[in-house]
Design a protein around this nucleic acid. Sequence first.
DNA 1: TTTGACGTCCAAATCGATTTGGATTACCGA
DNA 2: TCGGTAATCCAAATCGATTTGGACGTCAAA
Lengths: 343, 343
Amino acid sequence: MSLARIARALGISVTTVSRALAGYDDVAPATRALVIAEADRIAYRPNEAARRLRRGRAEAIGVVLPSGPGQFDDPFFLRMLSAIGPALEAEKLDLLVTTARPGADALRAYRHLVENRKVDGIILARTRRQDERISYLLDRDFPFVAHGRSLESRPFAYVDIDGEAACRAATERLLSFGHTRIALINALPLYMFAHHRKAGWLAALGTPGPLREVEPTEENGFRAMQDLLATEHPHERPTAVLCATDRIAVGAMHALAHAGLRAGRDVALIGYDDLPLATYTDPPLTTIAQPIERAARRMVEMLLARIGGAPAEGMQEIWPARLIARQSDGPPAGTDTPRNHQG
Amino acid sequence: MSLARIARALGISVTTVSRALAGYDDVAPATRALVIAEADRIAYRPNEAARRLRRGRAEAIGVVLPSGPGQFDDPFFLRMLSAIGPALEAEKLDLLVTTARPGADALRAYRHLVENRKVDGIILARTRRQDERISYLLDRDFPFVAHGRSLESRPFAYVDIDGEAACRAATERLLSFGHTRIALINALPLYMFAHHRKAGWLAALGTPGPLREVEPTEENGFRAMQDLLATEHPHERPTAVLCATDRIAVGAMHALAHAGLRAGRDVALIGYDDLPLATYTDPPLTTIAQPIERAARRMVEMLLARIGGAPAEGMQEIWPARLIARQSDGPPAGTDTPRNHQG
DNA sequence: TTTGACGTCCAAATCGATTTGGATTACCGA
DNA sequence: TCGGTAATCCAAATCGATTTGGACGTCAAA
């Protein structure tokens, strides 16, 4: 009803209207002006469905949000969406969001997007060591960009943050404070990011310290810290704890308070993510900041290139994170070194 | 390439294939079985674009996420998305997410969705007292459901939480503890929810106590509390502070700690939202819980009805919130009443 | 005058699913 | 044998934008 309507109003063909609006040069300037004027007048908007049908593309990209208990309030995805949105708008692509409980459900969601051609490409976050979503997409040769690496042997496009280097640096910072028993409350190691963070901690430490691995929520951080305090022999209790996420760190800090201990004074605590909240814990949390927004924008760029046919080879980027020193860490209790050493 | 392909393989017409798969009863059972078998074999999936073009619908609904500094980490929207997702999946509708900085940008985003027929309906959250998005959608007679009321005079569909009653009850709880100077750190009153929360506080109080109104972030809660502590005459300092959101409350609690005061002991503090975090503040935060997920599911139901042509009249629901008593409030300092009174 | 070369324009096909308005066949009762 | 009725099936139109493969005139060069 629409290109046709302009055509009828002007007494010219639909073809010419289409070509006038699309900027082809076989349209007389005068005709083009008429077409544009009329299009403006009736506030013409191309019918997306028709265009998609004809072009054979969905003109959209997809993101699958993990949902379900303990998942849905992870600020990470919201930050990512917020960054992806404007980047896509510039490209006139829609953002399709699906939710799925992690696990079997998740693969179903990806399959749905691919098989029903709902989107032209996918942005995939929180990669796993063995990631069936990645193998699925590679099998189908479907364009996607991941946030994070994976053990998959075939090359795929990703932007990752160097959690290993960041955690190594954080651990070294704790060592330089004089700590000798440095624990890690890690996320489940099936997550690639958790694996890297552990690797950094291990690399700095040489011989592993106490380790707990949990789904990264406040509650699990709380429990894990309580467990560390209870399980380890009193004289071998960690004097410093590195947490794989700020949510874990917040729970851990609470467990410390519960036990009459104070982060920074009695036990050094370092988080990861730099949630806005980290400034407002008591004490403010020393943590590691990741440029999620910039990474998301870069991922969109890569995804567009992939959709355009560019190969994934060479689309692997690992960006540095940086440590934000606040007050939750410092030298072991009973030491005289100044606090809040800039790392 | 697809209904046609099945038709060709079976030597029957596209019409019959379509009708067989759509369940019409003018297809012989044997034929239908053949069609279904072949469709299965080639993993037939209807082309969405073609279907949308033909049906004249987008088969999608839209949500506009506020993005930008201080916004993007608001857990509210993620919870809402997580609840909307599965509800839509059941209806085979897509979820289109757009981001916009609040303000002029936001209206542009809505206009975009409507004018380009990107979606069949919209879910609109965090309503304002004067909400141009609502008037715009009403002007266009475009189906939408809001989370929250507005001063708009024309009826529209919404699900709201009774923040007024909740805040009245919270204030009464503080009064019953013996507090007499009860402050409110509210969100900006241009937000309808903030207006209601203030109204509840006022209703319980009779004569207004100290009031601060800010964009609801941790940082602003921190500043507002510092301001309350600094500005009010020492003997008229509030002994209890009601916060319009948990994020504000977390910042406020931090400001208290900064001033050497402890929430629950020196100043009673009540939040609103029951973020998972609220359990892990120190002390755990007494707060008000809203059934966002259930509300979101109900909003989807309503939206489907609106898209189906049902009038908005009668689609107005106000649900109760409930207070979760933890340790951040109690009687004024120097009182003997037992703490953590169950409200 | 004829031949090309442009400059403009357009009819028709195409993308794939849906729907309208019959067409065809078999079978029944009269 | 003929009209009527189900039971099946299908050709063609439709949704709106895009694209292919020309058509038609005009004008300059030959």
